[in-house]
Amino acid sequence: MYAEDMTTVDLPGRQRAREAFSSVAPEAGAAKPDPILVADNVVRRFGGLTAVDVGHLEVQRGAITAIIGPNGAGKTTLFNLLTGFDSPNSGSWAFNGRPVEGVRSYKVARLGMVRTFQLTKALARLPVIENMRLGAVGQRGENFWRSLVPWLWRRQEQEITERADQLLARFQLDTKREDFAGSLSGGQRKLLEMARALMVQPELVMLDEPMAGVNPALKQSLLTHVKQLREDGMTVLFVEHDMDMVHDISDWVVVMGEGKIISEGSPDQVMGDPKVIDAYLGAHHDGAVKTVAGQEVEAGDTPPPQVSESEQR
């Protein structure tokens, strides 16, 4: 694979990450040398189904960690819980040592923990560049009164635009700068979403199935971008189905099954774990959609009465 062809000299971040993991035992809930995110006893139930029941999870700083698992394993739900988009029945977790359970989603993002979504959320009727500018935090012009006085925020807006243009160029979206985001292809939207998340200047980037629905050509470029994040000093946590990709880029893999963490380890260690193989084969026999009391509970469901969970409290 491409990454393996490169020398470690080109990828000092990768080198550092792999070294850090060398002393970590490949078992569920393993302690890491320098965790950026630590979660304990996170439980989320939907009716009778326990969607997530994670005893202990640590995410190593500066590494790329993948969460894999069959459909309905609770990966996306865990993402939603950690980022404040859903509230758990119980559990606690800390980001950079700071407890963040119960913190609202937008505050979690401001702390430096930014996520993307499985179903891409490009802001369709805004131009690409506006999507990007939106991502910048601490904008003076986002206050109503100051917004009426352009010269108070013009300068900052220019800086933001420059940063946005650099990112767009890096993600090869610069030609689409003025297009409505709704006119982009699925893969381009994924790129845009990732670039927009970087505008927040996060420490931890959480990508929910970044490869879903992306064509092979774009996949390679996405992979390169994800690796580059690690080289830039960011931590990446991502959910993925594509085992090739997981194997290619991740330093550490967390396997979930039926809400629990069933295994952890380096990509090679995990692939050889019989529990993992069981979980995947079992899932094939189950069929893709889990049902509880006749209700589908898979993500992407059309939701009737919905209160955005993040605003619950």
Binding site: S105, Y106, K107, A109, V114, R115, K121, G135, R196, S308
Partner: peptide, 9 residues
């Protein structure tokens, strides 16, 4: 949700 994920209240 996208706006929330970008740190806006």
């Amino acid at each position: 949700d996208a706006v929330r994920s970008l740190g806006k209240n």
